[in-house]
């Protein structure tokens, strides 16, 4: 029976081969139509808006473009954005490494719940991410009266912006590292410990080199979001010019004042940051796929 089936197959092979090509490969007209439709969609939705940012920014020439950055409020916004990212990214980096170490290297009950909770900030609307801090630290919030009594300001001040930024970028590093470290297991660390390395030596010399690309990937994405966050920061900022405006908030103010060239000029800075982020991201993806040199 089996032999019969095989011989039957071999006699009909040429026909099956042709059918196989017909059924596994799409005809050229279809390929070009689909490719064209996909590229048209991406062009309309991605390339056109991106090009619009730079075109609008340069509408009045290079001079007007750079004048947008000479403004003291713009510089203050750039400084604040860098400050918020400089605090939020390292904080979430340390958290991400600690969480991935605990989750990937040990067994404990409730692990999947913990992973879900770490992802929670991605599920929450940015507006709500800002709102919850207002409920905690605002004038009418839980700690509001205590903060006022001690003359401390979190909401409508820099600490609130930093907190909101930490919240919205919370999962980035952890979610890159957890699956990576789970896949790597514990064998190398155990070997290092058996050979007499201390816990920290094992981490710095064995674990860290193994996770560096995943870590960098997470940091790049975390930083892009930290510098570009709008909704959450908008709720806690209070929009005080020169004090609590980040770059995206400064863009909004300029735009609402019909100062379009300046708005798009400052926005083009963020668009450049996005392009650099995409470039670095592709580079890290490519580098992480390279075989390890020995």
């Amino acid at each position: 029976m089996a032999a019969g089936f095989i011989s039957q197959l071999s006699t009909t092979e040429p026909a099956a081969g042709a059918a196989s090509i017909r059924a596994t490969r799409d005809p050229a007209w279809l390929r070009y139509t689909l490719l064209g439709a996909a590229l048209l969609f991406l062009g309309l939705f991605l390339v056109v808006p991106l090009a619009a940012v730079f075109t609008e920014a340069l509408r009045r020439g290079v001079g007007a473009y750079f004048a947008a950055f000479a403004d003291a409020d713009a510089l203050a916004a750039i400084k604040l954005t860098f400050l918020a990212a400089a605090i939020a990214v390292p904080s979430n980096l340390v958290f991400g490494v600690a969480a991935a170490w605990a989750i990937a290297k040990f067994q404990f009950p409730g692990k999947s719940v913990l992973i879900t909770l770490i992802d929670l900030p991605f599920a929450v609307s940015p507006v709500i991410s800002g709102l919850v801090y207002v409920l905690l630290f605002g004038a009418q919030g839980w700690f509001g009266p205590w903060l006022q009594a001690h003359d401390l300001k979190i909401i409508f001040a820099v600490p609130g912006i930093v907190l909101a930024t930490i919240f919205v970028t919370f999962p980035f590093v952890a979610r890159e590292l957890i699956p990576l470290m789970q896949a790597q297991g514990t064998d190398e660390e155990l070997a290092a410990l058996t050979l007499g390395a201390s816990g920290w030596q094992t981490f710095w010399r064995v674990t860290l080199p193994n996770i560096k690309w995943g870590l960098l990937y997470g940091v790049i994405l975390c930083n892009a979001r930290a510098m570009g966050e709008f909704g959450a920061v908008s709720v806690v900022s209070g929009h005080i010019r020169g004090e609590t405006n980040t770059i995206p908030l400064h863009v909004e103010i300029l735009y609402n004042e019909y100062n379009f060239v300046a708005a798009f000029a400052v926005a083009s800075l963020l668009a450049l940051l996005a392009l650099v982020t995409l470039g670095l991201k592709s580079l890290v993806e490519w580098r992480a796929r390279q075989p390890v040199r020995t």
Partner: peptide
Amino acid sequence: LVDLPFALPTAVAGIALTA
């Protein structure tokens, strides 16, 4: 380029799409 919406701040996307 497909990841652009993840990398581009939403406010920039908003004013660009409006323009």
